[in-house]
């Protein structure tokens, strides 16, 4: 299972990558595998401000629905519009072209509440 080591992870299987004040958020390979073929994604509007662990969207497969939550507080700066027509990108490339949103981070301190790749690996094994 691919778990890139430069990302942070949540217990709900979102990942976040940090580049200065901006971050990219998606769901992990494990999450997309559990969901199966993804058929629909609902994402927030740009400029929306959301708190850490607040729900920001929905990912759906044929027979399952999963809410996705903000790994950190922040303002949405971009959403992955390509997913509207090609939600399968999340299955094909969850850490790359299947990203969900870009966020302007408010408080980097919140990252302390997330897992690094080693911790996430252990978390998955436990689950």
């Amino acid at each position: 299972m691919n778990i890139p080591n430069d990302l942070y992870y949540t217990e709900n299987h979102e990942w976040i990558s940090i580049d200065g004040k901006e971050a990219v958020v998606g769901i992990s390979e494990h999450a997309q595998e559990e969901l199966g073929d993804i058929v629909f994604v609902e994402l927030p509007s740009v400029e929306e401000e959301l708190d850490q662990f607040e729900e920001f969207g929905v990912i759906e497969s044929v027979k399952a629905v999963s809410d996705v939550f903000m790994p950190v507080s922040g303002v949405i700066v971009e959403v992955n519009e390509d997913l509207m027509d090609e939600p399968e990108k999340i299955n094909e490339d969850p850490f790359g072209s299947g990203w969900l949103i870009k966020v302007e981070i408010k408080d980097k301190g919140e990252l302390d509440e997330l897992m690094d790749s080693t911790e996430y690996q252990a978390f998955l094994e436990e689950e």
Binding site: V39, V62, P87
Partner: peptide, 11 residues
């Protein structure tokens, strides 16, 4: 019919 493609139906 054989197994039906529900993913295609939804996408």
């Amino acid at each position: 019919v054989r197994k039906l493609d529900e993913v295609k139906a939804a996408r």
